[in-house]
């Protein structure tokens, strides 16, 4: 069981790097969506016996992260007529190498932390760390609003992984709440994207500095 779990988490960690290396917006969206779906399957694997609540959250996560949010983002992409090329502030190779370094560092850190025995051999904690750091890298290193949303999504996936550590003690309601927040947030960003587009004719977040007065 740990094998299957670790394989899925490793896949998610790989998708972090895919997102960092992609040079086009749709592929970043696809990477974030796939990662969301992969992580959505995790609660099913983590629980010993099937519980309807877990099943519901799992299905909800897969649907929202894998289909609803990407659909919204793609619609925004179409509606705002955004150029699909990314504009990296940090080059693709440096971000890829940094992401890989963060992944290796996270695995080393996970080995050093005093974890509970049932988590010692799993990649949950390293995966969570790596995903959060890669999310931040994406947030810092890309200029366009949509790619910022993708960074935010990946960051949230990392937090979701942390949440799985506590799956027995915290009700999954919390996760459901996060999902709801996320959807709303993406809606809001979609509206903002639209507004920025109308106002400035561009989606470069660097231009937002001109709003300070």
């Amino acid at each position: 069981m740990t094998g299957g779990l670790n394989l899925l988490i490793a896949l998610a960690m790989g998708l972090n790097l895919v997102a960092l290396a992609s040079s086009r917006l749709p592929s970043v969206i696809r990477a974030a969506a796939t990662q969301g779906m992969v992580l959505g399957l995790l609660p099913l694997l983590l629980e010993q016996e099937f519980h309807w609540m877990v099943g519901l959250v799992s299905v909800g996560t897969v649907v929202v992260k894998g289909f609803v949010i990407p659909h919204l983002l793609r619609r925004a992409l179409r509606a705002a007529n955004i150029d699909r090329e990314m504009e990296p502030l940090l080059g693709f190779i440096p971000s890829l190498l940094l992401g890989a370094g963060a992944t290796i560092g996270a695995v080393a850190l996970g080995g050093a932390l005093p974890l509970r025995p049932e988590h010692a051999n799993s990649l949950l904690v390293p995966g969570a760390f790596a995903t959060v750091v890669c999310g931040f890298l994406l947030l810092m290193g890309r200029a366009k609003a949509i790619s910022q949303v993708c960074g935010y999504l990946i960051l949230e996936n990392g937090i979701f992984l942390f949440g799985l550590l506590l799956i027995r003690t915290t009700p999954l309601i919390v996760e459901a709440g996060i999902l709801l927040d996320l959807t709303v947030a993406v809606f809001v960003i979609g509206i903002i994207v639209d507004r920025i587009q109308r106002e400035f004719d561009t989606l470069d977040t660097r231009k937002l500095t001109s709003l300070k007065e």
């Binding site: 670790n6 394989l7 040079s23 190779i93 890829l96 190498l97 890989a100 290796i104």
Partner: peptide, 25 residues
């Protein structure tokens, strides 16, 4: 091209790290 080759390097690197951890993930 460099991006793809860096990816190849990273794939080999992760293979090395998997071997280091004794062959299991």
């Amino acid at each position: 091209v460099p991006l793809l080759l860096t990816t190849a390097f990273l794939l080999c690197l992760f293979a090395a790290l998997v071997s280091w951890r004794g062959g299991h993930l």
